[in-house]
Design a protein around this nucleic acid. Sequence first.
DNA 1: GAACAGATGGTTTTT
DNA 2: CCATCTGTTC
Length: 819
Amino acid sequence: MISYEEFERIVVDILQRDISSNSDQSTAIEADLNQSLFIVAGPGSGKTTVIVLKILKYIFVDGIEPESIIATTFTRKAANELTSRILDWGYKIKDYLLAKLLDYNIDIDDLRKVAHIDFNLILTGTIDSVATELIKINREAGTNLPTVIENYVAKSAMTNIGVYSNDRYLNENLQEYIGEFSEFTDTIKNPTKIAEGILAIREKMYYNVVDFDEAFNNISDAGQLLIKDAIIDYENELKSRNSIDFPMLEKLFLDKLDTDKFKTYLDNIKLILVDEYQDTNLLQEKIYFKLAKGIIKNGGNITVVGDDDQSLYRFRGATVDLFTNFPKRAREQLGIDVKEINLKDNYRSSKNIINLCNHFASLDDEYQNARVSHKPPIKYPKINDDKNIPIIGLFRNSQDILSRDLSTLISELIINGTVKREVKSIVDSQSFELINKGEDHSNLSKKSKLFDMSKKKNKKYIELSLDKDNGSPNDIAFLTYSPRELNSSHKNKFNYILRKNLERRKIEVFNPRGKEIQDIDSVKIFCGLILECIDPDMNILKEDKSIPLSAIRSMKKWREEAKKFIDKNPEPREPINLKSFVNHWQLRKPFNLDKWPKYTRLMDLAYKIITWIDSLQDDIEGLVYLQAICQTITQTGFFNEYGSTIYFDNPTKEKKSIDELYWNVFIPIANGGLKIDEDLFETLPNDRLNIMSIHQSKGLEFPLVIVDVGSEYKKDLQSTSFQRYPYKGGGDFELEDRIRKHSSSLDIPKREQLDRSFDDLIRRYFVAFSRAQDVLILVGLNSCIYGYSSNSKHKNIPNIALGWNRNKEFIGFDEIYMI
DNA sequence: GAACAGATGGTTTTT
DNA sequence: CCATCTGTTC
C-alpha cells in the first residue's frame, strides 16, 4: 500500500516517533514478514512501541490483514494497554492516509484497501483470553463451552472435593508429603493449605506438560496416591459442572489446535507476537510453536519480546531458559532461523540509575550464566542531561525514625514541590570494602576519604523537585518485597508505620494489599455477628476437632469484637435493635413470624446484619470487602452439600449445615484465603502515594522510586533470609525439580535450587531499581549497611538488594549519597 | 504477673 | 530457626 520510507515519515509526522534514530528498533520494525525475531528488550527500551509499530508496518506496508495477526502478553492490564495503543496509533495513521488519498485522488484500489482496515480484528490479549476466544470461534456446532473458574473457586473445590472428602486431610502420609515443600515444618495439617499444595503440584504438572497417566501409574508413596485421588476427584467434579480452571484451559486449547476446525484458521494466520516471553512456560511454548508452524507455512513469522532479567513468574511455571534458548529451540522445533535483536537504549531513566542497574546486574558472577549470553549493558542515549541526581540512601536506626524522616521528605516534596537535604556521607565502593572487612565505624571516615561529610566545610546538598504543574503523589512509588502492613501475629510492620506517618502529614496512601480482609475491623464485626447468630455457644465449633487452631483464635476474636459492637447499640434500633436480633437468632425464636423457618440462606442473614454496619454499606472500600465476602458465600456454596444454607428441620442437619459453613466460608476468611478484587478500587481518588510490591510495579515507571531494601532487618535472621539472602532454595524449587523429572520435553533445571533462588532475588530488585526515571532512594535500617553489634562483634546482614553477591562478598554500589 | 512449656506459622505473584 | 501467642503453674 505504502512504502516503508513513507510509513517511517508518517510515524514521525503523526506519532512524533523517529524510528530511524534507533537502529535496533528500526531493524525490528522493518524486518521482512518471513523473518522471525528474538527481541531482548531491556527496561525502558520502548518495546510496546516496537510491537505496535511492527504490527502497523505489516498492515500498511505489506498489506497483511488484521485478522491474521495475534499479539499476546502476560497480564490483562498489559493486554489492555497494547490493544488501546494499536487502536489509537492505527486509526491515526489510517485517517491520515485516507485524507491524503482523497486529496490527491491517487489510487482507488489503495483507497478502498485502507478504508477497509479494521484494527479490532487483530487478536490481542493474554494467552488465556486468546485461547477462550479462539475456542469459541472454532467450536463444533452445538457444543457447550466450558466456564473458566477463578482461583478461589478452584481452591474451594479442591478443599471440599479433594481434601475434605474421605477425611484425606487427616492422613499423615499426605500431610508429610505436602510438608516436604514447606521451609520450616515437616507436616502440613491445615486442610486449606493441603488443598493449595495439591493445586500447586497439579498446576506445575500441567505447565510442564507432564503425562498424567504415566506419572500416576508409577506412584507407590501413600501420600502421593492420595494426591492423585484428590486431583482425579477434583477434575471429575469440574467436568460434571462443565467447568475448567486456567491450566485446563491452556491444555484444552493446545489439544484443540490439532482438530480440523482449527486447520482453516491456522491456514490463514501470518503473524504472532508474544510480549513478556520470559514468563512463558512449556505448555504455552507448545501452543505458540503449534501456531507458529501454521504461520511459517503461510510465509509469516513468530516474534517474541522479553527480558530475562525481568522474569518474575517462576511460580506460574515460567522457565527463563525457554526465553534465553528461544533461537535454538525454534531452530530445532520449527526449522527456522531466528534473528536476535537487542533493544539496549533506555529512554526511561537517568544516567545514574542506568549505571546502577548495569552494575547491579553484573555484581554476581554466577548470575551471568542465567542470562542471555553476551547481553549488552543498557545504554543511555540522551545527550543533554540536566537532572542526573545520584542514588540516594536513607538509613536510620529504627523504624520510627526512618518512617518519620521518609514521610517528612515525601510530604515536603509534595506540598512544597521541592525538598533539600544535606548529604551526610557518600558510601562508595571503597567504604563498602572496609565495611565488608568489619572495620570499626569510627575508622571508616579516616580510611575512606569520601565517607564522612559532616566535618567538611563545603557541605553538599541534594535538592529534589516535582513537576510544578503536574506533580502529585502519583509520581512517587514505594516499592517493597511485601506490601503487608501487619505480620502474621497482627503486629504493625514498617509499611503500616509509614502509612500512618504519611497520613498524619496529609499524604493519602494507596495500598489495597496492605491488609488482609480478616484484619479489617468492619469485616471482623460482620463475621463475628453472623457466628454469634448461627452458633451461639460455639458448640459446633468446639465439637469439630479438626478446625485449625489459628482459625478458631481469629473467630473467637471476631465474636469478642461483635459483642462489643452489640453493646454500643448501633442504629437502627427500630423495629428491632441488634441485641435482640442476635438474641432471637440464638434462641431460634421468630420475630414478626409465626414460626422459625425450616431453612435460611446465609446470604439472607448477612444482608440483615449489614443494616447495622454503616461502613459496609456506605464507603467504597467497605463495599469492596462486602462484595468479597458475599462472593465467597455464594461461590463456595457451589461445591458442597448444603449450599450455604442452614437447615433447621432436624438437629443433625442443622449442625452439619453450620459446620459446613465454618469450612467453606469462615475458615477460609480467617486463614486469609480471601482475595480482594483490586479493579473495584479503581473508583478511589488517584492522587495517592502507591505502596506496592515489586511484582505489581513491573511494567510501570515513576519519576521518584523509593525501594525498601531493609526496613525490617535488624539482625541476620533465618526467617527474613529468603527476602534478601537465601540459605537454601525452598519448597517451590524442590517441587519444580520433582515435576520436571516427568516433563515431556524439559529436563531437570541445570542450576542448583539455591542458585535459582538467588537469580530470582536479583531479578526482583533489578525490576525495582529500573522503575525509576529521575530519582532512586534506597531506604532501610542502619543495621543493613553498618552491621549490628552483638557481644561487641560487628556483624553484617547479607542482602542482595544492597550489593552482596552469592559468595557473601559485599561489593556494594558505586556511590550512594546518604541523607 | 512472672516464668515456662508447647504450639504456631512464616512472601510474592497471574491467567 | 525463632518470634510470638496461649495456657498453665506458682
